[in-house]
C-alpha cells in the first residue's frame, strides 16, 4: 500500500538546493496541488526539470512567479515572459534543451543508462560543450542522464499500490519522471481499490510511486 497524504505533507522534505522534476506540458498534466503546496512552503533555490515554464499563475509558472528556482532545465519558456527576462539578466540559470533530448535524458536517468546519443542539435548552439560521437557515418551528441531528488507528478487514477493510469495529453513527461527521482509524489484525481486497474492497462508501475495525494 502506498501512503496517501495531503499536498502540504507530501512536499515537507523538499528543501533549498534540491532538484525537482515536475510533470506537465503548458500546465496540462502538472500536479497543481503539489506545486501550490511548494509555493506556500516558499522553498527557494530549487533546481527544476520540467518541459516548460507554462504561463504566469499556471502550473510550474507559479514557481517562476514566486522566484523559487535557481536553475531550470526546460525546452520552452515562451509562455512566461518572466523566465526570459530572468535568463537574460542572469537571475535564473536556464538550460534550454530540445524537448526530445530532455525526455531522453530523463528516461536515461531512470533507466540506468549513462546517457543517450541523439542527432538533434548537431550543428546548432545545443552542441556547445558536448561530446560528439560518430556511429555509422552519422554524428550524434552525447546527452547525459538527468535525475532528481523528488518528482512531482500528475496521473488520472492510482490504485492503492500506486499503479497509475493517465488521461489523454496529461501523460506527457509524467511516466518517465516517475522512474528518475529518489522520491516520487503523485497527485491523482481518484484512488481506486487494488485490482480495479487491469494489469495490462497500468502505464506506470506502482513500485516507482512513494506518496499519493488526492487532487482534482
Amino acid at each position: 500500500m502506498v501512503k496517501i497524504c495531503t499536498a502540504n505533507e507530501a512536499v515537507k522534505d523538499i528543501s533549498g538546493g534540491m532538484c525537482i522534476m515536475i510533470g506537465g506540458f503548458l500546465g496540462v498534466g502538472t500536479p497543481d496541488g503539489l506545486v501550490q503546496a511548494l509555493v506556500e512552503k516558499g522553498t527557494k533555490n530549487l533546481t527544476v526539470i520540467t518541459n516548460d515554464s507554462a504561463f504566469p499563475g499556471v502550473g510550474v509558472g507559479k514557481l517562476q512567479d514566486n522566484k523559487q528556482m535557481s536553475t531550470l532545465y526546460t525546452s520552452y519558456i515562451g509562455g512566461h515572459p518572466e523566465s526570459g527576462r530572468c535568463m537574460e539578466e542572469g537571475e535564473l540559470k536556464i538550460v534550454l534543451t530540445p524537448q526530445g533530448t530532455l525526455a531522453e535524458q530523463i528516461r536515461a536517468g531512470g533507466s540506468g543508462l549513462g546517457g543517450v546519443l541523439t542527432p538533434t542539435g548537431v550543428g546548432t548552439m545545443v552542441e556547445e560543450g558536448k561530446s560528439k560521437i560518430v556511429v555509422a557515418d552519422r554524428t550524434y551528441l552525447l546527452e547525459e542522464p538527468l535525475k532528481a531528488d523528488f518528482a512531482l507528478l500528475k496521473a488520472y487514477k492510482a490504485d492503492c499500490h500506486g499503479n497509475l493510469i493517465y488521461h489523454f495529453s496529461a501523460r506527457n513527461f509524467n511516466p518517465i519522471m516517475a522512474m528518475a527521482a529518489k522520491t516520487v509524489i503523485v497527485e491523482v484525481e481518484e484512488v481506486v481499490a487494488a485490482g480495479t486497474i487491469e494489469p495490462d492497462n497500468v502505464i506506470t508501475p506502482g513500485i516507482f510511486v512513494d506518496l499519493l495525494v488526492k487532487g482534482r
Partner: peptide, 11 residues
C-alpha cells in the same frame, strides 16, 4: 530578442 526556447522543433 527575448528567448522562448526550441521546444520540439529541433527534434
Amino acid at each position: 530578442k527575448r528567448i522562448s526556447g526550441m521546444g520540439g522543433a529541433m527534434d
